[in-house]
Amino acid sequence: MSAARPYASILAVLALGAVLPLVTSSNILLNGMVVTLIVALAGYGWNLLGGYGGQFSFGHAAFFGTGAYACALLQQHYGLNAWVAFGAAVALGAAVGGGIGYLSFRSGLRGSYFALVTLAFAEVFRIVVNASPFFNGAAGVLLKLDTRPGNLQFASRASYCELAVVLVGIALVATRAVERSRFGAYLVAVRENENSARALGVDTFKVKLKAISLSAALTAAAGAFYVQYFLLINPELGFGTSVSIQALLAPIIGGLGTVFGPLVGAIALHELGEFAQGLLGGLPGADMALFGLSLILVIAFARGGVLSLVQALRWRVPGKPIEARP
């Protein structure tokens, strides 16, 4: 088996994603694509920790908001170059992830306890940012419009799309690389049975810490990209519960612990949201209600998400027997 083969499907999807902005000039389509890719990127962060590591976070907004605020404030308060600020925001996100991970995993929190603690962290961040003048309170932070590539701002939506494709591409490749590494094997072992993993020499604390840091870095990148695109961040947009929910819905609906799950889930969610808007005409919260319904359906009927449905269909095609894996 050549080393490139596991990445072939990723390259194909990325190529498709890179061509799409070149062939359309519809602002609605391009905007939808950017938003979808931001959700996907946040979902890739969540998927590493939740899908592969089995640690279900309910507070990935903590990392998304950290990334967004760090990227904005480092430029506004400290005059940092946008690209540098972006990198620093990702690093800071990883550090915040490591910190939250250290505190909760050291105390042995698992399952719903871990979920609740992460939710609490995100809420504390939201409340603190909301109340603090340093973060400009509830009004949030506005980035100055200055469209230069050197400033990580682009005049055309297509350029944002291309950058988003690159970021999601990095997440895809990172996910595949984790899957094929010792760290990935250990991470899945921790998800399946922590005691057995320890008996086999896995330092489960270290593995979980590494996973949450990497996970937080990806989700922070989504936040930083968000602020570069919309040039606005406020406590609700950054640290709100709906951010955490979208980050976990994308991989769960697409396919938990799979390479393409978060992307497929993000696309499905976006289409579903648009559909809800069309159907119920801007009724506030209609999309969230539909997301909830789809989550129930996935959990009841398709635990493996949309991707598992696709696979099940493929196996039913007549004349094509189920092949044993080599």
Partner: peptide, 24 residues
């Protein structure tokens, strides 16, 4: 017995083997 239920037999054993072998 506490197998990694969703993993294959080979993958289960590989988790143990990783202790002495870094490469997948």
């Amino acid at each position: 017995v506490q197998p990694f239920a969703k993993l294959s037999v080979a993958e289960n054993i590989a988790v143990g083997a990783h202790l002495r072998h870094r490469s997948r």
